[in-house]
Simulated assay, not measured.
Amino acid sequence: MKKKPYKIAAKAIIFQGSKVLILRKSFAERNAKDTHGWDFPGGGLEPEEPLMEALAREVMEETGLQVKVIAPAYVYDEIQEEKHLLIIKFACDKPQGSVVLSPEHDSHHWFCVDQLDQTRVPEWMKEEVRRAYRVYNEFRRSHR
């Protein structure tokens, strides 16, 4: 079996009260990668870049926001043709600034968590939001 290089990516599931930020990839990104197009801000680590710095950098590059990272909410890996990708999704709070999207995305949406089922967001993404929302709420209860 051929060994594949590991790549680590960090994604932010950002909450503001009962709303969650979900991005829509640009038309070019959706076509190039044949993807559903929904996304959380974040991306891959650069060589020797600490995980939290990478997450803060990616969120700033893709949204113009600064956030407070609460805790990991979801971890999974994906073995792709060219690499083995490890993805860590973090529940985040207190977005500061105004959303300014990078060319990678063409729109952003603040969805009410309790109304996600009425959206076109994929089921797996809804489940990740629910899991991160539990982490987010637990954090808020313990830090009152």
Rank of each mutant, 00 (worst) to 15 (best):
R30T: 02
P122T: 06
G42C: 06
K19V: 02
K19C: 04
V121M: 05
A9C: 11
L21T: 09
I22N: 00
K19H: 06
I22M: 10
V135H: 08
E53N: 14
R130P: 00
A28W: 05
E138V: 14
K7H: 08
G64W: 07
H109C: 01
L55I: 02
L65V: 08
D77C: 14
E48V: 07
I88P: 01
M1E: 12
R30N: 01
V100D: 06
M125R: 02
L116C: 10
V113D: 07
R24G: 11
E128Y: 03
W124G: 03
S102F: 03
F111L: 08
E53C: 00
T35W: 14
R134D: 12
E128V: 07
K89H: 05
Y76Q: 08
H109D: 00
P95M: 05
E61K: 11
K2R: 15
H105C: 09
E49C: 04
Y6L: 11
S98N: 11
V100A: 10
G64H: 03
M60Y: 12
L65F: 02
P122V: 02
K11V: 07
Y136P: 13
K33E: 11
V135L: 12
I22F: 04
V129F: 01
E138C: 14
V99W: 01
S142W: 01
H36K: 07
A56L: 13
P47S: 12
R141K: 13
E81N: 10
M60W: 10
N31S: 09
L51D: 02
P72W: 00
P122N: 04
V121E: 03
Y74P: 03
T119S: 15
C92A: 14
N31A: 09
E127F: 05
R130K: 14
R57L: 07
L55C: 03
L21A: 08
E62N: 00
A73C: 15
A56F: 06
W38Y: 14
T63P: 05
K89D: 05
S98E: 15
V99F: 00
R141A: 15
D34S: 10
K4C: 07
T35S: 15
D39C: 14
D93C: 05
I79D: 12
T63W: 10
Q115T: 09
L51R: 00
N137R: 15
F139S: 15
L51P: 00
G97D: 09
A54Y: 03
W110E: 10
V99C: 06
A56S: 14
I79R: 11
F40L: 02
V129Q: 00
R120K: 10
R130C: 08
K126S: 12
A12G: 12
Q80C: 03
P41C: 12
L101E: 08
Q96N: 13
V75M: 10
F111M: 00
M1N: 13
W38H: 04
K2S: 13
D117W: 03
G43Q: 07
M60C: 08
P47V: 05
L101D: 10
L85G: 02
D39P: 02
L101N: 08
L23H: 05
V67W: 04
K89T: 07
S18E: 15
I13T: 06
S107A: 12
E81V: 06
R134V: 13
P47A: 14
V75G: 03
W124Q: 05
V129C: 01
M125Q: 06
V75N: 13
L65Y: 04
P72M: 06
K83M: 07
R141Q: 15
